[in-house]
Write a protein that binds this DNA or RNA. Structure first.
Length: 573
DNA sequence: GCCGTTTTCGGCCCGACTGTTTTCAGTCG
């Protein structure tokens, strides 16, 4: 059982308890524990099996929760959850997803009207039954109906790349206003999380009305959902929602800190303020009535005895300890990258030639690239067999003679077949400069089988890296099930690199896995998997993911010169 | 339900906006 699944059960319990009206602090305790479990790279299943006494050493896990975790790992559930599941139907929990509807209202509708599904809720609202309940009225009823309609359309969080493109466009337009002094995105988009639930836009201005009126009329905005003096909430055409907050200039840093989050990071920040007898909110750090910091984020962190923490690390996953000790990483930046080692050409399913790709990469300032077209198993993509591959490499060498200032490696993206063998012979693979081994098919095989396939690939002396390890697609497909400890241990032993695939839909390794791989001494490569010259643009998202993992320039192999890079390749090369 | 360099009991982050209310509860971030 994966950590995420264990955490999911506790989150479910928290929702159920909330609808029931339980003690809010108890509910929070379950959510905190779920977060601890989800953010931990060590497998809780293994901890339960090997050293269950360690469970209570994790923050937020005490005697009771430790027992429940053991029970979950052994039986897949626990009695308290089962009892509540019997008591409250799943449809009732789903009602929590409606905007403006929380546990109290859901609880009331369930108890008073016995509504158990979204469909029943919709019917009741249409018949006007909701507005007759105490504490409800026409507006709430309408907002429920609107919410149900919207739920059907949207549902998922947006990809970072999509969300960021929209907010960047809006920022460009709003920053033209004379009344807007400072403007920035905040929230999970600024933290570069792989998905974004909604956008947060922050402005310092002495004329909030002008900004709000302009945003209201912006071509990307479809509807104003809320509007007050300092806060406006709008829905964009894409369905994504956005909060605009307007603060005075001397509160801008505090507001940036506050609205960038994460929630968990901010709870620690406010506790630190409290410990010193101060108060921290979006307007500043206060000693009594007196603002002692607020202009800039740096001041606030400094006052609390901390080094400024980059937004990507603000998840309460160890950044405070590092900040206090002065050991925060100097995070990798886009400009550190000088190569891309995973891309396609017209030889398989790319749209540009070898030469076009090389020239485009050179324009970006990159010093070397590896052309890695598909192997023959990927018939849909016109994958290469041994003969075509050798011919392709000949063509690469010809292009290399024509183009100076960038080195082109002869590579291949080779499938790891369902039976665990490589799609191309070891003989031909050993002729390559660079071999990215990947899973494309059979992602649903059982964990043991997937593990075996990856271990075989890592042991194959020709393989230099594993690409998009799990095969997950953000928001769309769960990756293959595997034992990360085994895989990383083997990769570390055999000197095989791990890729962060920078495509916004992949971002695989994810942040936690990338951090773990680095901690186990595995060199990381960040690659675009470009299928066209435009495809190089996604490198930034790979960098974001690497930054969230806490990676520095030295942790990433394609920040090195080609000579240094070659020295990092496994000894069998 | 968890946690403790004032505590093993009594706390547990903070504020804006909305809707349903006549001073505030619920929801959200």
């Amino acid at each position: 059982m994966q950590n995420g699944e264990i955490a999911g059960l506790f989150l479910e319990l928290a929702d159920l308890l909330e609808i029931q009206g339980s003690n809010p602090f108890r509910i929070r305790a379950y959510r905190n524990a779920a977060r601890t479990i989800e953010n931990e790279t060590e497998s809780f299943e293994l901890i339960v099996k090997n050293s269950p006494e360690e469970l209570q050493s994790f923050s937020g896990i005490g005697k009771d929760l430790a027992e429940k975790i053991v029970h979950v790992v052994e039986t897949g559930s626990f009695s308290q959850l089962e009892e509540l599941r019997n008591e409250i139907p799943v449809g009732v929990v789903q009602m929590l997803r409606l905007p403006g509807i929380g546990p109290k209202k859901v609880g009331a509708m369930y108890r008073e009207l016995a509504l158990t599904t979204i469909d029943e809720l919709k019917a009741a609202a249409e018949q006007g039954q909701i507005s007759e309940l105490k504490g409800f009225a026409k507006k709430t009823e309408e907002s429920i109906l609107k919410g149900i309609e919207h739920l059907a359309e949207m549902g998922n969080r947006a990809l970072l790349a999509e969300a960021k493109a929209q907010v960047d466009f809006i920022i460009e337009d709003l920053s033209q206003l004379d009344s807007v002094q400072k403007i920035s995105v905040a929230g999970s988009c600024r933290r570069r999380k792989e998905t974004v639930g909604d956008l947060d836009l922050l402005i310092s201005s002495d004329n909030s009305e002008e900004a709000m009126e302009t945003l209201k009329e912006h071509p990307l905005v479809s509807e104003v959902l809320q509007q007050g003096k300092t806060k406006q909430r709008v829905r964009l055409n894409t369905g994504l929602e956005m909060d605009l907050r307007v603060v005075p200039e001397n509160s801008y840093g505090a507001a940036m800190q506050y609205f960038t989050g994460s929630k968990e990071h901010n709870i620690v920040m406010r506790k630190k303020a409290q410990e010193r007898g101060w108060k921290l909110n979006e307007y500043g750090l206060f000693e009594g009535e007196k603002q002692i910091a607020g202009d800039s984020e740096e001041e606030i962190y400094t006052q609390l005895g901390l080094e400024w923490i980059p937004p990507e690390l603000r998840e309460d996953r160890g950044e405070f300890e590092a900040s206090e000790k002065g050991t925060l990483p100097k995070l990798i930046e886009l400009k550190d990258i000088c190569a891309d080692l995973h891309m396609h050409t017209t030889a398989s399913d790319g749209t540009a030639s070898i030469k076009e790709m090389a020239e485009a990469a050179k324009k970006l300032g990159w010093k070397y690239i590896s052309i890695t077209d598909h192997s023959k198993r990927v018939t849909m993509a016109n994958g290469l067999d041994e003969k075509r591959l050798r011919k392709h490499w000949e063509n690469i060498r010809k292009v290399q003679e024509e183009i100076k200032g960038i080195d082109i490696l002869c590579g291949i993206e080779c499938d790891i077949l369902e039976d665990g063998t490589m799609d191309l012979s070891e003989e031909v693979l050993l002729e390559a400069d660079w071999v990215v081994a990947v899973l494309h098919y059979g992602l649903k095989q059982p964990k043991e089988k997937i593990n075996q396939r990856l271990l075989n690939a890592i042991r194959c002396p020709a393989v230099t890296a594993i690409g998009h390890l799990t095969g997950r697609l953000v928001n769309r497909r769960k990756g293959a099930d595997m034992d990360m400890d085994d895989i990383f241990k083997a990769a570390s032993d055999y000197g095989v690199m791990m890729e962060i695939n920078a495509h916004p839909k992949r971002l695989d390794l994810n942040d936690l896995h990338a951090r773990k791989a680095r901690d186990m001494g595995i060199p990381i490569v960040i690659n675009t998997d470009a299928h066209s010259t435009k495809g190089f643009d996604v490198m930034q998202y790979g960098i974001f993911q690497a930054r969230r993992a806490g990676l520095e320039k030295k942790d990433v192999a394609n920040t090195r010169t080609l000579k240094q890079f070659r020295k990092m390749l496994r000894t069998s090369r």
